[in-house]
């Protein structure tokens, strides 16, 4: 707002530099114009039109932003409010947004349920391993593809994209059988590998766009200074794309953190993750809205914190991709 105010309202001195000396549309600005005497001038009607246009664009953008925020934020807010409702309030007809009586009972029930804490640990383990696997594989793959530009590299990156188009359920059952045969049934590592199949293609594509944005001159300069190619990658390129790596990591982490189908098919007692536990509140006998929303709200907290923590890196990473060329 301060920037907008200074640009629109401005100080008299600033205004004088921009405003013309005469014209029907100069009401109220005559003295400022006179004070501005021999400085560089711009036609008043042009400046006003420009400023008015900016204001309407800005207003439109604010409205669109507000609509987008409501569309994205309302479901989560509704979930949050529902988690504080009493059982009868959660199923009110017609539904209400705010709880009539606020209660923490749903949180007590949800967190007191057996297996919830273990599922949080499992989700964390699985997401960390899956993210690490994705990055370890995606960074060199993307670097190789963008720097060497071979036909096989192009085929590889397209093939990676195609794997995103295969329905997870089609590979879920064979994967579960393979893990069982490998003796990895019902372990977080098996689930992490499965989750990596989801996040790896996206990670390769993301990292490729980030590497593309880094001028090759930087590496050549590092090579001239005595770095090997790997040295240049580690010392020069990786620091430049660190924001991109953060973006890729958070997407990989989220893909694993929220994944349901593989977790449903591949976990039992030892490695069940929280999305499955949340789904367990819906039974053949009904849906415990209060407890389900309470656990979902708690499960959202780590992701929100992670996003806030890496916010700067994420923005930097997104900008990195945007300024290519």
């Amino acid at each position: 707002m301060s920037i907008a105010d200074s640009r629109l309202g401005g100080t008299p001195a600033t205004e004088t530099t921009l405003l013309p000396a005469s014209g029907a549309s100069r009401k109220g600005h005559g003295s400022q114009t006179a004070a501005g005497g021999g400085k560089r001038r711009r036609p008043r009607h042009h400046a006003e039109g420009l400023e008015a246009g900016k204001r309407s664009t800005r207003t439109l953008l604010w409205i669109l932003l507000a609509i987008a925020m409501v569309l994205y934020g309302f479901p989560f807010l509704y979930l949050l409010f529902t988690s504080f409702k009493t059982p009868i309030d959660t199923i009110a007809v017609p539904p209400t947004i705010l709880p009539k009586d606020w209660t923490l009972e749903n949180y007590t029930n949800a967190l007191g349920r057996s297996g919830v804490l273990a599922s949080f640990i499992n989700s964390t383990q699985t997401a960390i391993i899956s993210t690490a696997l994705s990055l370890v594989l995606a960074v060199p793959a993307a670097y190789g593809i963008t720097r060497y530009k071979t036909p096989s590299g192009r085929v590889f990156i397209m093939a990676a994209l195609v794997t995103r188009m295969v329905p997870p359920v089609a590979i879920g059952i064979p994967l579960a059988s393979m893990m069982a045969t490998a003796g990895l049934a019902d372990t977080p590592i098996a689930l992490s590998i499965a989750h990596t199949t989801i996040s790896l293609p996206l990670s390769i594509w993301l990292m490729s766009s980030f590497f593309e944005a880094v001028p090759q001159d930087l590496e050549e300069a590092a090579t001239v200074d005595g770095c090997s190619r790997l040295g240049a990658l580690w010392r020069v390129v990786i620091p430049v794309v660190s924001g991109g790596i953060a973006v890729t990591a958070i997407f990989a982490f989220l893909a694993s953190w929220n994944e349901f189908l593989f977790a449903l098919l591949m976990t039992a007692i030892r490695s069940q993750t929280t999305p499955v536990v949340i789904a367990n509140f819906q039974t053949q006998f009904g849906l415990d809205w209060g407890s389900m929303t309470a656990l979902a709200a708690v499960y959202s907290i780590p992701v929100i914190l992670l996003t806030l923590l890496l916010q700067r890196k994420i923005v930097a990473g997104m900008t990195l991709g945007a300024v290519k060329g």
Partner: peptide, 19 residues
């Protein structure tokens, strides 16, 4: 984190056995 997770991943947090 990965090392800790990998170590723990051998058994998972839910219980001792799956079969």
């Amino acid at each position: 984190c990965t090392a800790v997770a990998l170590t723990a991943a051998g058994c998972g947090a839910g219980g001792p056995t799956s079969s």
